[in-house]
Design a protein around this nucleic acid. Structure first.
Length: 550
RNA sequence: GGUUUCCUAGCUCAAUGGUAGAGCAGUUGACUCUUAAUCAAUUGGUUCAGGGUUCGAGUCCCUGGGGAACCA
């Protein structure tokens, strides 16, 4: 890597730690003057130089220019770290100060100079670690470079032994340091962080540097995805990748994004669901498959909706929707126990006991969601009858249903189908109030054309919707594998929804798909739930925003 | 798409229609175990853009841009 070539310019400052470069060019570079020359460049400004002290960008650029003039370019330097911050701290043995040398690197986030000794903190992927710079350790010249050329936001590498300060913080006593990236722009304010929502999303990297909560939340999301993969792989599920560019947007009812392939001169849509290709894999004989992938829906943006979002879909041959119940319950409990790891504290003060818990606070309602308790299972129809107080609801005429919906204070459009009127009650009045994990089963068959019809009730399908925190977290079905019934369901829906039928998928079904259970989980919503976030934007690194003009 | 609301220093926020301020950060100085370090001094503004009302607009009105909440 050519980029490390100038690294050796600092090698003599960090003996034995930085292992870059061959011996030959170590020798060559050892004659580089490095920063030793720096202090001979007094930072004096003649009267003709304009005052830039208020312009932090200009001040930092000037510091960079001074470093380069002295023969050192931070953008051509690097550091061979030995540990991340928290791993380094864990090495320290009580009572054995200055015994364990480490090399750590990160962004300068705290700068406290007090005369001849200074405490600073750097931040890396694992968190922060304190560094102690002393003039009598580093020497006058290097200490001056540290004080005058470094700024908050710079990225540095340091080498030195661990010790514990008198206040008990494990700290690196810096024997040598090197600047490996100069921040030309200042960080947001240290105490209040960055709170302007727009900047948080447009410049997420700043949010992640200064807001620990965001840092932790988005790290948890990454761990959730990782744990989901391991959980499924442990159960012999295979991860596969299916097309994003599709000619028919199937598997859900949503408006797709349109695009065009030039060489083929063909229009494509971006997928709105993973379902139909994963089922082709069941036909192929991959009996347990899953995909974690991006879906795109050309619809509104809200606290719960981003135009691109991440779905997990799982298909298991020879299972059914009840098998999916067990799977999702095991999965979510695993995520709570091993990723989120909530704790509960009992008692006060000295006698307080903290123990692992299975409860997570629901941000919107303030209620505690208990993943450890038994999960409620209830039929869709029973919930509707309970809410309307009408045991005969499902045999009422459309006019009676419209009146019933309006009586509950909801808007009812005369153009809606019966099941849409009923589902309005479910969506507006029932779902938002299901805070504890609830399996809602036996939905009306019009709501999904891809599931098997219930054996003893031809108006419902063998499905569940797992609702937690008032949000639909995971729909699951006993997958429809009768090609003729599937075609009829598609055609009935195509009439209403103006959707295209995926004939290629139907052809695959005619070759025979094993009976299977399938399930989808919205990863973003799952992350909202498990991290206690309030908006989908809080769990997506770069949520969709309008382009700024100009 | 509709309603409401917000946009002021690098960041977080002030400012009855009447001279645009503070904290942090920056700059200069003091300080060799600090924890939002401290102390002293000091710089920094096209108040999102463009119009209008007014003797006078950050503030009121209109248009546009962007954000947020609620609704669809």
């Amino acid at each position: 890597m050519g980029a490390s070539r100038n690294f050796g310019a600092w090698r003599h400052l960090c003996v034995g730690v930085f292992a870059f470069g061959s011996r030959t060019w170590r020798r060559r570079l050892s004659v580089c003057p490095g920063l030793r020359r720096l202090t001979r460049w007094p930072v004096s400004m003649s009267d003709s130089v304009p005052d830039i002290s208020h312009d932090q960008h200009a001040v930092r650029r000037q510091k960079l220019a001074e470093l380069r003039a002295a023969g050192f370019d931070p953008f051509r330097a690097n550091v061979a770290t030995t540990h991340f911050s928290q791993d380094a701290k864990a090495l320290h043995v009580d009572g054995q100060d200055y015994a364990t040398p480490v090399t750590v690197a990160g962004r300068l986030v705290t700068f406290r100079v007090q005369g001849g000794s200074s405490f600073v903190k750097i931040q890396d992927q694992q968190g922060q670690i304190q560094l102690y710079f002393r003039k009598d350790v580093l020497g006058e010249e290097r200490y001056t470079v540290f004080k005058k050329q470094l700024d908050l936001g710079d990225i540095i590498g340091v080498t030195g032994p661990l010790f514990k300060t008198k206040t008990g913080e494990i700290t690196v006593r810096v024997d040598a340091f090197t600047l490996v990236s100069k921040a030309l722009r200042p960080l947001p304010e240290k105490w209040h962080g960055l709170s302007d929502a727009e900047q948080v999303y447009r410049q997420r990297y700043l949010d992640l540097i200064v807001n620990q909560e965001s840092r932790h939340r988005l790290m948890t999301r990454a761990r959730i995805v990782s744990a989901v993969r391991r959980f499924l792989e442990d159960r012999q599920f295979l991860e596969v990748e299916t097309p994003v560019l599709q000619s028919v947007a199937g598997g859900a009812a949503a408006r797709p994004f349109q695009t065009h392939h030039n060489a083929l001169n063909t229009d494509f849509v971006l997928r709105i669901s993973l379902e139909l290709y994963l089922k082709r894999m069941l036909v192929a004989g991959y009996d347990r498959v899953f995909e974690i992938g991006r879906n795109f829906r050309n619809e509104g943006i809200s606290r719960r909706h981003n135009p691109e979002f991440t779905m997990l879909e799982v298909y298991q041959a020879y299972s059914d929707y009840r098998g999916m119940m067990t799977l999702v319950q095991d999965l979510l409990r695993h995520l709570v126990r091993d990723v989120v790891k909530p704790t509960e504290t009992e008692g006060e003060g000295e006698s307080a006991i903290t123990r692992p818990s299975m409860r997570i606070k629901h941000a919107a309602s303030g209620e505690w969601i208990d993943f450890g308790a038994e999960w409620r299972e209830v039929k869709y129809k029973d919930l509707i009858i309970e809410k309307t107080g009408d045991p005969q609801w499902f045999s009422r005429s459309k006019e009676e249903k419209i009146a019933g919906v309006q009586k509950l204070g909801l808007f009812a459009d005369a153009k809606w189908e019966d099941f849409e009127l009923t589902n309005e009650i479910f969506g507006k009045l029932i779902e938002p109030n299901l805070i504890q994990p609830t399996f809602v089963t036996h939905l009306p068959k019009e709501l999904c054309p891809l599931a098997k019809i219930t054996a003893d009730d031809s108006s419902t399908i063998d499905v569940f919707e797992l609702i937690i925190g008032g949000m639909e977290i995971a729909p699951a079905y006993s997958e429809q594998n009768d090609p003729d019934v599937q075609r009829a369901m598609f055609e009935a829906q195509a009439g209403e929804e103006q959707q295209k039928v995926d004939h290629d998928f139907l052809l695959a079904l005619e070759h025979g798909m094993p009976p299977a259970g399938g399930m989808g989980i919205g990863i973003d919503r799952l992350a909202i739930l498990l991290t206690g976030a309030e908006s989908i934007r809080d769990v997506i690194l770069f949520p969709q925003l309008r382009n700024t003009a100009g």
